[in-house]
Design a protein around this nucleic acid. Structure first.
Lengths: 150, 150
DNA sequence: CTTGACTCTGTAGTCGAGTACGGAGTGTAG
DNA sequence: CTACACTCCGTACTCGACTACAGAGTCAAG
């Protein structure tokens, strides 16, 4: 027997049974043939397709994008450019996200080290860890009349 | 007049009116005093608090985490260590995310360039852009009998 | 005084990617 | 033949962070 039930497929691809049906509804997975009982019968390659989906998700593609990728895959050579373009766009996207995260990390790192310095010569007990204060004033401050107990 | 209506505050902090009420429900924003009519009356500092929230969100904190941060802020000096610890944990988190994204980018970049090479000496028309194929086999392959037109 | 913009409350909808559940039918090992 | 695991379908729920809406009341300008 070289077809799989949905549960066997789920174990093979390490996803949930419900996830497989969900992908089918979303059009990411073709409807497989059925046994007379209605049970889905998958070929082992279905697990590859599921792994493809998982891998693409890990690479930051949304399910919609993955659907497009799978559609392109059907006719590969003529769509090479489009696949390449999609991947390039995704790279740009990823680079933006990396840059954002690096900026965040920089800000937090500065604040943590500033905070540590203060802790060491523990005199300035009157001023808190600068992390919180530093978060507040984003670039150009709007008018501040000083003097206000919230 | 130095109090703001919710709409003025929303414009000042560049968030939606509904968002402000949502933050209030979530406990991120204290309930402000009201006019007899029930209208909320905000001090200008409320805009700082909203900017704090926005900034922290940009830094990757969830609203729950921001709530904790704001709670810690109330008693700053005694909580310095905890604030610092929270920020450090967030840095670790950010670094993990950066590493993941860099890996994704690496994979995609390799695939795109491999694809470009093929396009140049455009002989291998039989094999598609390797992006799609390369996505599939995740590390150790499970049995593949070759030969299958899906 | 009227008009129109604003605000109030409470509830419901959105998006993405699933996950859970109920009730019925099926496959199979012992 | 009887358990019991598995599968079917459809619907509803989850999470996070909002966003929209209905219907009523309020404020300020002209």
């Amino acid at each position: 027997m070289d077809t799989l039930t949905i549960g066997q497929l789920a174990r093979a691809a390490d996803v949930g049974v419900e996830t497989i049906r969900f992908y089918e509804r979303r059009g990411l997975l073709a409807e497989p043939p059925r046994r007379p009982s209605g049970y889905r019968q998958y070929e082992p390659e279905a697990a590859d397709r599921l792994r493809f989906i998982r891998r693409a998700k890990e690479l930051g593609f949304t399910l919609d994008e993955i659907g497009e990728l799978l559609a392109l895959r059907a006719r590969p050579t003529e769509n090479r450019d489009r696949v390449r373009a999609a991947a390039s766009a995704k790279i740009d996207d990823i680079e933006r996200r990396i840059a954002d995260l690096e900026q965040m990390r920089g800000v937090l790192a500065r604040l943590v080290s500033a905070c540590e310095e203060r802790s060491e010569h523990a005199d300035a007990a009157m001023s808190g860890c600068p992390i919180l204060e530093a978060l507040e004033p984003r670039a150009d401050r709007t008018s501040r009349t000083a003097e206000d107990a919230q």
